[in-house]
Design a binder for these strands. Structure first.
Length: 417
DNA sequence: CACCGTCAAGTCGCA
DNA sequence: TGCGACTTGACGGTG
């Protein structure tokens, strides 16, 4: 089983995607942004290699206006060297990459203009995966689209438009059940006719199930049959509901107990699981550690190094508890480890604890007396309430960047929660 | 410097 | 009929 995450990662410097508004668009600006975004992609691929993550979704934002006439650049030629370099890494480390066009790519719309733009968008996605020299197991995941008051006709229109797609897109396209319109049976029916692999999404399924009483395991095994040899091993999406938000909203983090309970029922090892969750790579590593039968103490030490100042900020008590726990190298319990950490984030924040964490982080910087003076002044303002914790953390983040303090930059302290 | 509204894409549910 | 929700960074304007 491989587990992966989508698009962005926490604790990776320069991993974001820039874009541009129509009003101030120019080729020069586009080139500048694409260069930056490819750098981000390479940084995340490097992160995945370092952390042995074999499944990853590339953001559609990689090339701004990638499928619009507003971008007429031959970016795959202009940046061929960079694409080749990233392609080599993806191949060498056997990372399965995919892409997932957003909610505005609707292949079955009754509006021809929308369909036309959607086809162009799918072609753009295929072009990225081709520029990265990936095989046809690198998929483009698409939802069926709208219903327009007549689902049967809308389904037929999806199939007709699908059949008109260029061959290189068809080879990569897979379809997924959504939380509103097309449940897993709808998607399997379309698959049956058009011969398209199906991605099962557990949360969408929970919210929008067909009128047929089957377990997730049964549906996942039905979907398995839609994957041909050239499609690679079966891929599914796993996410959990954010209890405070509207149905379908992804949780901040994955709860290992919930995941394992579900995963044990699925009872499959020959499967790739894409996690859809706010904390991205953090949950991917968490699930990797919780399912690793050969877990080493060092794995949890590495995980702890990234979490520790977040935990300290919320609960010094938990901070010392985990430190004690990790001293016992014989009894590794990753599920308990993560339960305690995640539970600490439910503690109310207190300014004293936040300042305590800030002081610990400050301890990393070997600074001159002038810088120390600036820090102490800020600290005083913080205590008086005239400076926010957010501003202070931003200041420390700037210091971490300028002093290349990788230990801090790779931690979750500046980003999580 | 921080914060807020607007923009851009397509669909659907609700006044 | 038309607006808000969904998403997210850019950007212009305000405090």
């Amino acid at each position: 089983m491989n587990v992966g995450f989508a698009c962005l990662s926490i604790g990776v410097y320069h991993n974001d995607y820039k874009t541009i508004r129509k009003d101030n668009l120019s080729d020069d600006k586009l080139i500048e942004i694409i260069q930056y975004n490819l750098e981000s992609l390479e940084n995340i691929i490097d992160y995945n290699i370092k952390n042995n993550i074999k499944l990853f979704r590339i953001s559609s934002d990689l090339i701004p206006f990638g499928s619009s006439p507003l971008n007429s650049l031959k970016w795959w030629e202009i940046f061929k060297d960079k694409f080749d370099l990233i392609a080599e890494k993806i191949k060498k480390y056997n990372i399965r990459v995919s892409m997932h066009p957003g909610q505005y790519t609707v292949l079955n719309s009754p509006d021809e203009g929308v369909v036309d733009r959607s086809i162009k968008d799918l072609v753009y996605h295929a072009k990225v995966l081709e520029a990265l020299k990936t095989g046809t197991s690198s998929k483009i995941i698409l939802h069926i689209g709208g219903v327009y008051g007549d689902k049967l006709t809308a389904k037929k229109r999806f199939i007709i438009n699908y059949l008109q797609l260029p061959e290189n897109v068809k080879k990569r396209l897979v379809i997924e059940n959504d939380e509103r319109s097309y449940h897993i049976l709808d998607v399997l029916e379309i698959s049956e006719v058009a011969n398209i692999p199906v991605i099962f999404d557990n949360l969408h399924h929970k919210i929008n199930p067909p009128n047929l009483n089957k377990t997730d395991q049964e549906w996942i095994n039905f979907c398995k049959n839609t994957f041909k040899k050239t499609d690679g091993i079966q891929k599914i999406h796993y996410s959990e509901q954010d209890s405070l938000k509207q149905p379908g909203a992804h949780s901040k983090t994955i709860n290992p107990e919930s995941f394992l309970e579900w995963f044990n029922l699925i009872d499959r090892e020959d499967i790739d699981i894409m996690l859809e969750v706010k904390d991205k790579n953090v949950s991917a590593i968490k699930i990797k550690n919780c399912t690793n039968k050969n877990l080493k103490n060092q794995d949890l030490e590495n995980a702890w190094a990234k979490y520790k100042y977040n935990v300290l900020e919320y609960s010094p008590k938990t901070y010392f508890l985990i430190r004690e726990m990790l001293k016992d190298k014989m009894n590794l319990d990753p599920v308990l480890f993560y339960r305690i950490i995640d539970n600490s984030f439910t503690h109310p924040l207190s300014i004293n604890n936040q300042i305590n964490a800030i002081d610990h982080v400050w301890g990393y910087f070997k600074t001159n007396s002038k810088e120390k003076e600036i820090y102490l002044k800020k600290l005083e303002k913080l205590k008086q309430g005239t400076l926010t914790v957010k501003s202070m953390k931003k200041y420390l983040y700037g210091l971490a960047i300028s002093t290349k303090m990788n230990y801090l930059l790779e931690s979750y302290y500046f980003e999580l929660i």
